[in-house]
Simulated assay, not measured.
Amino acid sequence: MTLQAKTLKITAVITDFEQHLDLDTVGSKIVTVTIVDSTGGKLAVSLSSKSYRKAVAAFKEYDGNAAVIVSGELDMAARTINQAGIIVQQKVPKAVPEPIPSADVAVPVLTDPMPVTRSPVITIKKKHILEIPTS
């Protein structure tokens, strides 16, 4: 089966952004970078110098505790990412679950597994009375 697509979107997580924080972009409108993946494949990317400077500032503001992401449309023939953008997302530590209360703390025990907010159900059981003749 062959499927056709108008465009292919690509998202690249940059792993060595801290090594490129001193790149001088003042005076240029576009910053051209090359992204190299783990297999050695290379893609050329043109980024707005203003967005690159904002990404550097955000990365420094988060003290390097951030993910840097470049995304755009992949042009496989030209080996480029067109209409590319760069964003920086702060890494937030996962929430630590609350500790289990100790045995001396009273924990309510639920006897009814169904929530109280449901409509009440009344069940009526019929009682059969059998008369046994006595002789």
Rank of each mutant, 00 (worst) to 15 (best):
Q90H: 03
H128K: 06
F17K: 03
I81M: 12
A95Y: 08
M114D: 15
L43E: 11
S49E: 09
V116G: 07
A95R: 06
R53S: 15
K94A: 15
Y62E: 14
T11V: 10
V88A: 08
P101R: 07
F59C: 12
S48C: 11
A78T: 05
D112A: 07
L110T: 09
D22G: 07
I10A: 07
L130F: 13
K9R: 03
D75L: 04
D22Y: 00
M76N: 06
T123G: 01
L130H: 10
R53T: 13
M1S: 04
K94C: 10
Q4D: 01
A12H: 01
K50A: 14
T111F: 12
P113E: 14
T15W: 00
Q19Y: 06
V109T: 12
V56H: 05
V88W: 06
G40W: 02
G40A: 02
S119Q: 09
V26E: 15
S71G: 11
I30Q: 04
R53K: 11
I100T: 14
R79N: 14
F59S: 11
K29T: 12
E131M: 06
P97M: 13
R53W: 00
T111P: 00
M76H: 03
D16S: 05
V121D: 13
V56T: 08
V70T: 09
R53G: 12
S38V: 01
H20K: 05
L110G: 08
